[in-house]
Every structure is written in structure tokens, then in C-alpha cells.
Amino acid sequence: MTSCHIAEEHIQKVAIFGGTHGNELTGVFLVKHWLENGAEIQRTGLEVKPFITNPRAVKKCTRYIDCDLNRIFDLENLGKKMSEDLPYEVRRAQEINHLFGPKDSEDSYDIIFDLHNTTSNMGCTLILEDSRNNFLIQMFHYIKTSLAPLPCYVYLIEHPSLKYATTRSIAKYPVGIEVGPQPQGVLRADILDQMRKMIKHALDFIHHFNEGKEFPPCAIEVYKIIEKVDYPRDENGEIAAIIHPNLQDQDWKPLHPGDPMFLTLDGKTIPLGGDCTVYPVFVNEAAYYEKKEAFAKTTKLTLNAKSIRCCLH
């Protein structure tokens, strides 16, 4: 018999989150649709729960009410004593943790798909938090293969000092899905179709896995975050240069030392320094102006996964 890495157990509980950011409308629209008619997301033997994560922000069509829901799922915020004085999103995070967690427990949901849009030209993107997770690498390989020839990129946010504390991190297997470009507060049919297909293929993978299909060893190309880059700023902290036209919409493309990065209003080009080629992502993302992030630098690498098969009882 072929030796293989056996994944822990079959997958039982899956959640699909929309509206973690209330103005990213593809996930909101799909989740609302699936709450009314969820036939397309159901798979035999699998509990799939669509869920609106930040209903107040969705109602106002804004990213958040008090603070970013997708950055506060750490033990400090989840452990705060519940009171009306807490920011709305912290209270909501505790409610979500109660419903789908608790985080880092045996009772937490197996998989959470968190649906997002970006204003950046990132196409279909899967966000991975753990480079050693054979199950998710296999799932992402399946999704990428199923979507081809449509490109699907994998963004690895594993980093020693950049801690995200994402909404989906309460699950055993957290999956971020990011599709763009799409303006905030807008629905685009092409973007919706791409996100819908990503979810379909992900659920198909889980179904095949649960039925005992063995997935042979595989490898995927990923883009691992190195650092986030702020806009150049003046002495008052105001933005002093904008994304250069040569960099705009060039997510995932190589940016070499000396290539144009920013452009000042008086026409001066600010190039990339250093001696390493990087791959920019979230270029000129609207939501990241407040976070002082013009783009993120990534490096390209390959992740390998062992063969996996479900432990059938």
C-alpha cells in the first residue's frame, strides 16, 4: 500500500463567511444568496454554514464600524470581559468565536472560507496562513488546477512579526479568498463568478477527501510576504508620492531593483532599492491607505505537500 500522510479526520463542519468587511460585496451577495438557497454549497455528509460576519458594517456598506474585524481574533480580544464599552467588532468577534470556535479547541469548525474583495488587480487569490499544512496545500492545488487556465495565486502570510489574527483563524483550516479588482461597494459579475467557482472547487475537494480519495504528493507556487511598504510621506505625515503608473495593476509581476515604484507630484520617480527582485501584491489597495500600506513585497517559492487521505471509520 502506498505510504501517505493521513489527515486527522474527515471534514464535518464548514463555514463560509461574507461581510467580514461590509463594503466587499461579492461575499456579502453570495452568502445572502446561499442563506436563501444553499443547494449549490451542500455536499453529502458535510455541514456547510453561510454566515454574515459583520452585519452592521454590511448594512452601512462600510469596511467596519469601530475597528477591523479581520485583525482582532487574538486571545487578548477574544478574552476581554464582555461589555457595551467594547468596540462593536470586538464584541462581534467574541460572538463569532462562540459560534464557530472556540479558537484553538477541538470544537472549532474544521474549515472557514472568508470571502473578500480587493481594489487591487490580484485576480483569484487564496490566502494561506501555514506553509506546513498538507491538507490546505492539497486543497489549493486542486482549486488552482480546477480553475486553469484562469490564474489563481496563493498568498502566504506566515511571518515572524506580522500577526494578522484573522476572522477565519478560529477554524482548524483557515482559508482566505480574495478576488479583484473590484471597487468597494460595487458588485461585478465576473468577480462574483470567479469567487463562486473557487468555493465550488473547494467544496468538491472536501467531498472527494471525505469519500476516501487519496491525493498524491503535489507542489504549489506561493508568494510569501516579506514586508509592507508605506507611501513616501512629508514631515507632516502626508502622502508625498503615489503608486507609479508602471507599478499600478502589476500585482504578482516581478519588481526589480531600480524599477519605478512611486511618483511625486513634481514628476520624480522613486525606484525600488535593494538588490532583490520582489513580487508586489495589494498594490494601491483602497482599504490600506489608513493602514499606511502602499503594497506588500513578496518572494516566490514552492511548497510541497505529502499525499493525504481521509481516515475512514
Rank of each mutant, 00 (worst) to 15 (best):
Gln250Lys: 12
Ser146Glu: 09
Tyr142Pro: 00
Arg63His: 10
Glu106Ile: 14
Lys103Leu: 10
Gln12Thr: 14
Asn97Phe: 08
Ile137His: 00
Val278Lys: 03
His313Gly: 11
Ile137Gly: 01
Gly237Cys: 05
Ala287Met: 06
Ile170Arg: 07
Thr44Ala: 14
Lys81Ser: 10
Thr145Asn: 10
Val179Ile: 15
Ser161Met: 14
Thr145Leu: 14
Leu150Gln: 08
Ala202Met: 03
Ala286Met: 13
Ala286Lys: 13
Lys292Gln: 13
Lys200Val: 10
Leu115Lys: 02
Gly27Thr: 01
Asn37Ile: 05
Val175Gln: 02
Lys253Phe: 06
Val186Asn: 05
Ile191Pro: 00
Ala305Arg: 01
Pro102Lys: 15
Thr302Trp: 07
Met122Ser: 13
Val14Phe: 01
Leu187Asn: 09
Ile157Ser: 15
Asn210Ile: 07
Gly273Gln: 13
Asp74Gly: 07
Glu8Trp: 14
Gln184Asp: 13
Cys61Gln: 09
Glu285Gln: 09
Lys144Val: 06
Ile72Asn: 13
Leu46His: 03
Leu187Val: 08
Pro149Leu: 02
Thr20Trp: 04
Phe295Met: 06
Val58Ala: 10
Gly258Met: 08
Asp104Cys: 10
Ala296Tyr: 08
Arg92Gly: 07
Glu24Tyr: 06
Gly237Ile: 01
Asn23Gly: 06
His116Asp: 01
Gln12Ala: 09
Ser120Met: 01
Glu47His: 09
Asp266Phe: 04
Leu156Asp: 04
Ile206Leu: 15
Thr118Val: 15
Lys213Gly: 09
Gln94Ile: 12
Cys124Pro: 11
Trp34Phe: 07
Pro50Arg: 02
Thr302Cys: 06
Arg71Ala: 08
Ala241Asn: 03
Leu312Trp: 15
Ile157Gly: 10
Pro55Leu: 10
Gly185Leu: 04
Lys200Asp: 09
Ala148Leu: 10
Ala39Tyr: 08
His5Leu: 12
Glu290Thr: 13
Leu272Phe: 10
Ser169Lys: 08
Thr119His: 00
Pro149His: 04
Trp252Asn: 02
Leu128Asn: 01
Val175Trp: 02
Lys13Leu: 04
Phe215Ile: 06
His33Ile: 04
Val14Thr: 04
Pro232Leu: 05
Ala7Trp: 15
Asp230Tyr: 13
Val281Lys: 02
Phe73Thr: 13
Ser108Ala: 13
Leu263Ile: 15
Phe135Leu: 06
Val154Ala: 06
Met198Arg: 02
Lys300Ile: 08
Cys4Asp: 10
Met195Trp: 02
Ile72Trp: 06
Phe215Lys: 01
Leu162Gly: 08
Glu76Pro: 15
Val283Arg: 01
Met122Gln: 03
Val222Lys: 01
Tyr288Met: 13
Lys13Thr: 12
Thr125Ile: 05
Gly180Phe: 02
Lys213Cys: 13
Asp230Phe: 12
Ile170Trp: 06
Tyr164Ile: 07
Thr2Cys: 14
Ser131Met: 10
Gln94Trp: 12
Ile143Ala: 00
Leu263Ser: 07
Lys103Arg: 08
Glu290Leu: 10
Phe140Ile: 10
Glu129Thr: 13
His116Arg: 08
Ile112Asp: 02
Lys49Arg: 15
Leu25Trp: 10
Asp275Leu: 08
Ala240Val: 11
Asp104Asn: 09
Glu24Gly: 05
His33Ser: 14
Ala15Arg: 01
Tyr64Phe: 14
Arg132Phe: 06
Glu285Ile: 03
Val283Asn: 01
Glu129His: 07
Asn23Arg: 04
Leu203Glu: 02
Gly27Ala: 12
Ile220Gly: 00
Glu214Thr: 08
Cys4Gly: 09
Ala240Ile: 11
Ser108Trp: 11
Met198Ile: 11
Lys60Leu: 12
Pro245Thr: 04
Leu35Ala: 11
Leu69Tyr: 07
Pro260Gly: 09
Leu192Ser: 06
Ala219Phe: 07
Asn121Ala: 13
Thr167Gly: 12
Asp85Asn: 14
Asp190Gln: 06
Asn133Leu: 03
Pro232Asn: 02
Glu158Thr: 05
Tyr155Ala: 15
Asn117Pro: 01
Leu35Ile: 14
Phe73Trp: 15
Thr302His: 08
Arg196Gly: 03
Val31Gln: 00
Met139Asp: 00
Ala57Thr: 05
Lys300Gln: 08
Asp193Trp: 08
Ala7Thr: 12
Tyr173Ala: 13
Ser131Thr: 15
Leu35Thr: 15
Asp266His: 15
Asn23Trp: 00
His33Asn: 08
Lys197Asn: 15
Asp251Thr: 02
Arg56Glu: 10
Pro280Phe: 02
Glu290Lys: 15
Tyr231Ile: 04
Lys200Pro: 00
Ile270Lys: 05
Thr62Ala: 13
Phe73Leu: 08
Leu156Gly: 02
Thr53Cys: 06
Leu126Phe: 10
His244Trp: 00
Glu178Phe: 10
Asp251Gln: 03
Thr2Met: 08
Asn121Ile: 02
Gly19Pro: 01
Val186Gly: 03
Tyr289Glu: 13
Pro183Gly: 11
Asp85His: 14
Val14Ile: 13
Phe262Met: 05
Leu46Cys: 15
Pro151Gly: 05
Lys292Gly: 10
Gly273Asp: 13
Thr53Lys: 04
Leu35Asn: 08
Ile191Phe: 04
Ala7Glu: 14
Tyr288Ala: 15
Gly212Phe: 04
Gly237Thr: 04
Leu75Tyr: 09
Lys172Tyr: 04
Val14Ser: 03
Glu24Asp: 14
Arg63Lys: 14
Leu86Gly: 14
